[in-house]
């Protein structure tokens, strides 16, 4: 018999997953359009080092400490890979690969060195476990008498989601111009370096907030797949953002049902659903093209016979 408490647990999990997926979809749109999908992958991994360092240095894992640590390391990843690319003339994707794997490995070593002090295990870092999200809650007041405000991960992603949505809403026109045509933006006097690092900040915040829920590997799926599906259909940047959010929410719902049915990992099921939706979209587009061709062929034939 499912009790009310179980329902509430499910609700927290779905709410957290929805916000994670929506935030990832929004920043993912810009990563896809700017051809920086790999940078999303890189930052999502190297923020681990940021989290661990912030925790070791500050001694707490409050939300703001985690966010700051992740953003600093995220920006450092972006800056170092670009510098390495310029300095050494290595391919830019090779440079990104070098920097983020280095940061991630240092993070993994630190986690295993300080296992006793850090509330993080390697398994959780890689895969996340959204099913445990509701048990780590924020309590207002002191431990015994305070009010339980709900899962920490939920509040973290809610803050990040709000920041990302507001940033995109306010800076929409600028983000569009620097994404569509960087050199035009420069010629108009727009500081594209600022906007680049601004986007990288959003990516870092999004990935650190998604960490608890889906882990470093699957966050990449949420960054890239819904935005890619949207790219296939979108006719404007605004529509692409809405479509990506719609795809991400679809993936969460289908994925949650799938994991319930298979009794498997929620995060992995969500990623699989996102992939399935992308495949479905591609198929529909291909079928529509085929029907159109048939239609034209028929028209041509009837034109000849007439």
């Amino acid at each position: 018999m499912p009790s009310i408490e179980n329902w509430i647990l499910d609700l927290w999990i779905i709410a957290t997953a929805s916000l994670v997926a929506a935030s990832c979809a929004m920043v993912g749109v810009f990563l896809i359009l700017r051809r920086q999908a790999l940078m999303g992958d890189a930052i999502s991994h190297s923020v681990l080092l940021g989290i661990v360092l912030a925790y070791l240095l500050a001694g707490t894992n409050t939300l703001w400490v985690m966010l700051t640590g992740a953003v600093i390391i995220g920006l450092l990843t972006a800056w170092l890979s670009e510098s390495l690319h310029k300095l050494s003339r290595l391919q830019s994707d090779a440079s990104i690969g070098i920097v983020f794997t280095l940061f991630f490995s240092i993070g993994v070593i630190l986690v295993s060195l300080y296992t006793g002090h850090i509330d993080l295990d390697q398994e959780c870092v890689l895969y996340g476990e959204i099913a445990f999200v509701p048990f780590d809650t924020v309590i207002w007041g002191d431990m015994e008498t305070g009010t339980d405000l709900g899962p920490r991960a939920f509040w973290l992603i809610l803050i990040v989601f709000t920041l990302v949505a507001l940033s995109i809403a306010i800076g929409f026109e600028r983000l569009k111009t620097v994404t569509f045509h960087p050199s035009l933006a420069v010629s108009l006097g727009i500081n594209i370096t600022f906007w680049h690092y601004f986007l990288m900040t959003l990516v870092s915040m999004t990935t650190v907030a998604s960490f608890d829920a889906v882990g470093a590997i699957l966050v990449v799926a949420l960054l890239i797949i819904p935005a890619s599906s949207a790219y296939l259909l979108a006719t404007s940047l605004k529509r692409m953002l809405w479509l990506a959010i719609a795809y991400s929410q679809g993936s969460v719902w289908i994925g949650y049902a799938l994991s319930y049915w298979l009794d498997s990992s929620i995060a992995a099921s969500i990623a699989v659903s996102a992939g399935a939706l992308l495949a479905l979209t591609l198929m529909v587009i291909q079928i529509r093209k085929w029907i159109q061709q048939q239609h034209y062929a028929k028209q041509l034939q009837s034109g000849e016979s007439a």
Binding site: E173, K176, F180, H181, T235, L237
Partner: peptide, 27 residues
Amino acid sequence: EIDWDFPIDVMDVVLMGRHGQLKFWQR
């Protein structure tokens, strides 16, 4: 120089010529 598959219509591209006159939050 640019990706001509970018999801954007002609009017929006031409409007980008006006961005130099606009602050970053303005439409």
